[in-house]
Design a protein around this nucleic acid. Structure first.
Lengths: 214, 214, 214, 214
DNA sequence: GATGAATGAGACTTCATTCAT
DNA sequence: AATGAATGAAGTCTCATTCAT
């Protein structure tokens, strides 16, 4: 007994340990550079056990993508309170997104860097998750548009493009904030919210968006 | 007819053929999955010749990153006409950017997907090119602010933050546009220009930015 | 009958088989000319197993040097009986040395021919073993000097120099005896004993050292 | 004109430049590790020229062995003055040997380390040269024996063994003197002469050989 | 007399995966 | 539930050597 090297754990627990190790390894080394040896060692089990539970490197990676995608989605959903006005919801969603990715850098690396870089079947795997995020954002923006009585409605494709732009901007700012001393994560988030909500023109004319008194 | 298998070419020409093949292979397969065998065959030469001229897989990949990064930078610079007003310059730059990435999907894949996913030294290699783009965009936004006599002036740090956000959004959209059939470069540029210039709120209220009659 | 192709052996046994094969191959072909393929085949295993257990060609060669050096050292130590007079001890040590090198020609080739010819880190590896032999011989000569009440006493440095000369002569003669058919280990030992003990001048005057009636 | 990069040299001169480069490279890197590329570059010519003049790596190495063996032989012969008594001749020969090998470390490495370590045809190549050295030493020792009216004469095989022992002792002492601070080459030579001429027993009883007043 | 261009063959090494217990 | 033993296949890289000028 003791966490040093417990044997004979129930399957579900062992599987999670393996996936933890896999996410960490894939996230840091990349899909191809990660070796099953390293994953098994990090998980504290033998290699055949990894194969017994997860079948192959490919399936293991797919499982990682699914797990991390769902976790991210849940985090964003949980961060948004349905009753708020549109800008408040967006602000809350972005904060949740930033928080989750900062706390799970390996998982985020798996989703953002690795899953896109290694072709099928991983791109498809990621696709279905992105569809869910887009649907969620679409809902948000759609609600905002109705709130503003926008007419005619934004096309779905435009919404997807906007979501892509938002995520890209968020990633870029996160990296910049990380690499630049004395730029806080909150400042970065505010910059993004301004950029996204008010647009450059409004910023040029000194009409920024104001964060809600939180 | 055509260069079926020309032999004894001068070194400079052969090197470009090899780099073409390498960009294509790296862009489609990824850095690790691409094999030197495949690159050599696609270039129509033997493997030792690739090593003789380009030394190693790592150096070859670095050379690809540099070549593609410079080409992209030149394309954007060439697309912007200095005399225009700020939004016109931004619009021109974005069009040039999305056009170039659409016309060089493998080169863009090398920069956006592969160089980021395979650790040092490639990330640094890419970083310096990205810094140049960010500096360029920073200049543009600063000019726009002066043009608008914004008061109080935007802090330098805010300008850089906005430029980071814009560049990140552009990168993300370019990947999306490349991966999504029937999204044209011009549409992507318009989506981003709207997003950046008008901001989401204006979009919600059906007050988008209008492209200049070109 | 015989160990045609025994599978699933414990690691320690397999490692010895591999080292046997490696010593033989290195000794006959040389470090560079020996291929890991040949070693694996001679050991009756696949190449990856050799790497799994012994890591690299360099480490494998180093391990061979250490094993053979220790075996030789032990053989010489075991051959010398502490109670004898000085010339008897020297004679016994030389006999053991030449016998061992004659019985392990590949091991001796690894030590004498290959380890010296392929630079660091092998030369150092061998150096420490050689230092042990020299120290051993130094002790022997020192004992002989005390036994003879030599006065004035030999300087320590002179003793080490003599030991170096003796060891070098032995190494060289062993190589020669191994390469020359019909020169027995005992003859080689006698030649060296005469040379070392009586000196050329005494040989010239037909006053050789006499082996003890064994 | 000038030694920087003279072109169109007569064949004999070019060949010597190549052999110089080859001896240096083979001596330092070893036969296998030396590459024709490195040799050609060090010689300041293109690789095809090396092949044009010297045909193959194997022939080039053989030619190096022959050249260096002859040079060593000549040096020793030139060092010995025929009229001297036996110990004086030996002393002179050893000095010439030490001097030549110290001044031509790469050539000595080719003969002593590399030629023996890489099998046929090099071992044979070296063999004929060793035969000449042995004949020379045999003559010397034979003269000494006649001088001493030794009877019965030493067998040829014994002479070869003694020569081997001498050379081995010399090499070992040379290495030791090089690695040990404040042991001069001359001291090493004296130690060897004592060891060889007087023998350990005489040394034990304080009857060393005396170097001739030079 | 001399060389830039080019390659077939083979080396070391790694990895995903399975077998037998 | 778990693992020590083992390998087929593939990858990066080097080298002696030749061809065409």
């Amino acid at each position: 007994m003791g966490a040093v090297k417990s044997k004979r754990m129930p399957r579900a627990v062992r599987e999670q340990q393996m996936m933890d190790a896999a996410v960490r390894t894939f996230g840091q080394r990349g899909y191809r550079a990660a070796s099953m040896d390293e994953i098994a060692e990090l998980a504290g089990v033998s290699k055949p056990l990894v194969y017994l539970y997860l079948n192959s490197k490919e399936e293991l990676f797919s499982a990682c993508i699914r797990r991390e995608a769902n976790a991210l989605l849940e985090a964003v959903r949980a961060g948004v309170e349905p009753g708020l006005p549109a800008d408040g919801q967006l602000w809350a969603g972005l904060r949740a997104f930033f928080l989750h990715t900062a706390e799970n850098p390996d998982g985020w690396s798996v989703l953002h860097r690795q899953a896109r870089s290694h072709g099928e079947p991983f791109v498809s795997e990621l696709g279905s998750m992105r569809d869910e995020i887009v649907a969620f954002v679409t809902g948000l923006i759609g609600a905002a548009a109705r709130e503003a009585h926008r007419d005619p409605a934004l096309a779905d494709r435009d919404v997807v493009g906007l979501a892509q732009a938002l995520v890209g901007a968020a990633e870029s700012l996160a990296g910049w904030a990380n690499d630049t001393p004395d730029v806080s994560a909150k400042e970065a988030a505010a910059t993004l919210m301004n950029f996204a909500w008010a647009g450059l023109e409004n910023l040029m004319h000194a009409r920024p968006w104001q964060p809600p008194a939180a």
